[in-house]
Design a protein around this nucleic acid. Sequence first.
DNA 1: GTCTATAAATGGATAGAC
DNA 2: GTCTATCCATTTATAGAC
Lengths: 197, 197
Amino acid sequence: MGSDTRARLLEAAAQLFREQGYAATGLKQITAEAGAPWGSLYHFFPGGKEQLGVETVGHSGARYQRLFDLVYERAEVGADEAVRDMFRLSAEALETSGWADGCPIATVALEAASTSEPLRHACADVFAGWRAATARRFASEGIEPAEDLAVYVFAAFEGALILSRTGHDAGPLRVTADIVARTIRDRRPRSETASGV
Amino acid sequence: MGSDTRARLLEAAAQLFREQGYAATGLKQITAEAGAPWGSLYHFFPGGKEQLGVETVGHSGARYQRLFDLVYERAEVGADEAVRDMFRLSAEALETSGWADGCPIATVALEAASTSEPLRHACADVFAGWRAATARRFASEGIEPAEDLAVYVFAAFEGALILSRTGHDAGPLRVTADIVARTIRDRRPRSETASGV
DNA sequence: GTCTATAAATGGATAGAC
DNA sequence: GTCTATCCATTTATAGAC
């Protein structure tokens, strides 16, 4: 094949953008981390840093979405429990990484919101995909309005991640998960409000 | 007096950090925006960019908190309505600024989370202050657990701001405000659940 | 004490050797 | 087609003129 270098560049960029942000990460640092020669970056990404940013956001977004899908596809638990799992998994990843691995998109999204339309758009697409996956899970259980509740869950999730990461304290993720999960549980259709099993 | 320049530097930095982030904003750009000579920056902030960042976060945080206080002190409405006002005011500011004026802290908080302890700590302090102000309002109405609910409200608020700003769409702030406000309303003590007036 | 001019380093991007 | 060496702009920080 040969395009292994390209994959390593994307992976290195994803990790650095997640940890330090887009502007603070130099292209030299990315090639060094990926063990790739400097020139290979402009070979694989002729559009420079912005193209690399856009592709990295898509890459990170797709990878993170697989985690959501994994959680959501556990049919044996209710959507409220799936949401709680999502919060718990993220809290664990955040804490075991020394409060480094937060949302792989949020930092770039905020940095790019008013400075790069292509990058902002890439982030918006990722968020839309995550939201849609969540809404599908809700709709499949008759939890309505599924789209609005998915937006709400993601807002709470993203915000709690910021608070927990900034404070070096998993508390916000835990507390928010409890309240959000209860909100979702209360929206389940009547016929399933029994105790389960 | 004489320290008018210092205030203008803080103000310019606050605006630029909010819009572009910390790493993407150059010190030269800040002095230019403030109409201050280049050297004055290191005169007033001998600690360089990091000191300016820390003080700017405190400055922005205090200013934003006054907005919260204003909303929360409207005793004639319930806490759920106060929360809704907070979301609505932010949505208006965001939209009328062309999706530029989001949270003045969040971008810097994420950028600094793993790169600057002084800056991260400054952001954490601001978030703690906002949360405490919200918790006081809840506690004054007997809405409990006030601290946990305040964390939840702020998580949802910060996340909705990200989603709305990234998507150029006030929808997430509106939708999230509705659900969060209802959650708070449902926590009001029994004696006040009547219709009001 | 206030600011101009400069320094040392790093940023993203490119030209051209192999 | 793949990468090394170089370029110029811009960054933060400082030294010293007024």
